[in-house]
Design a protein around this nucleic acid. Structure first.
Lengths: 161, 161
DNA sequence: AGCATATAGATGTTCGTGCAAACAACTAGT
DNA sequence: ACTAGTTGTTTGCACGAACATCTATATGCT
């Protein structure tokens, strides 16, 4: 390929700021969850998603999609949660290959204990520094990029309306 | 703590879209670099940063700061680069504790070969889906968040003017 | 029915990263 | 010079994540 469309100075700045921002933010959030709740962000996402599901239960594959996780990663994450007694695995009644991950009361309690600190961190590091207008702009921007990343809106978790 | 300021529906949507967007984007970029260049993003960042430094050389600690990496991570990354002959480690003339990482010609050649594909991916997945206005908005947003994450602008790499 | 193929999920290996510890060399105060 | 403390860097270890592989069940086709 001959003509690479390089980034101009402006795009360069935006891209690098974006990169630094997302890396530092992810690091900060991971560290918060790790030190306060001995948990990965992937692990936290599983608890949140289950807690919002009907019956606090979900098929493994659906849970994987909902948390933007590979099946392999989810399987490991749920295995760890099971060892801690936060999640239980039931056999799926309609498909004998399937497993249903169920959030236990202990798991829900952990989430209740963990969520405030996490939300507070998200607010402090991402939302508070922005004006309300910027928050809206950011929302629209993310939707646009998601549409490009995810051609056939597989993300039921992020409705656009 | 009694009063957690939970996210309202709007903030919730924005935050989750942001989360999904950054995760999917990072995954896509990592995969691109991995399959096309057998390289981590952290590894790529080191090559880029060195290539822009005077003499294509930089002290380890400065390189760590410039790439938003921990010293430990940088040490591992540079070790791998050294094995591949892309980077060389010289002793620092002014401080005998220090090491200077130097990009070799081979390393520079790899970067030249890798950059176009990477830039193309960044453009296709992030910049192209956005209007020019949105790119500017995103830039401003990132600067604001960075300021919060990084109280005393340690990031010389992202000037705000 | 019978076979190929696809899907759900688990497992093992390999690799990158964080953390804490180790060590060397610099700096400041005595 | 001597100690105390700090800084620059590397290293060992433990853990999470990606990828490929494997087993079991389901589905489609003839």
């Amino acid at each position: 390929m001959v003509g690479t469309r390089w980034l101009d100075a402006d795009e360069q700045r935006t891209w690098r700021a974006f990169l630094a921002m997302t890396e530092l933010l992810a690091d900060a959030l991971d560290r918060q969850l790790q030190t306060d709740a001995h948990m990965t962000h992937a692990a936290y996402a599983v608890l949140v998603t289950l807690s919002e599901a009907p019956g606090r239960a979900m098929r493994m594959s659906g849970l994987a999609r909902a948390t933007n996780s590979s099946q392999s990663r989810l399987s490991h994450v749920v295995a760890r949660h099971e060892e801690r007694g936060w999640v239980r695995r039931d056999r799926c009644p309609t498909d004998r290959r399937g497993q249903v991950a169920v959030l236990t009361d202990a798991g829900f309690a952990i989430l209740v204990a963990t969520a405030p600190g996490h939300v507070e961190t998200v607010r402090r590091l991402l939302l508070d520094p922005l004006s309300q207008t910027q928050v809206h702009q950011l929302g629209a921007i993310c939707q646009s990029v998601l549409a490009a990343l995810d051609p056939e809106g597989t993300l039921s978790s992020v409705p656009s309306d």
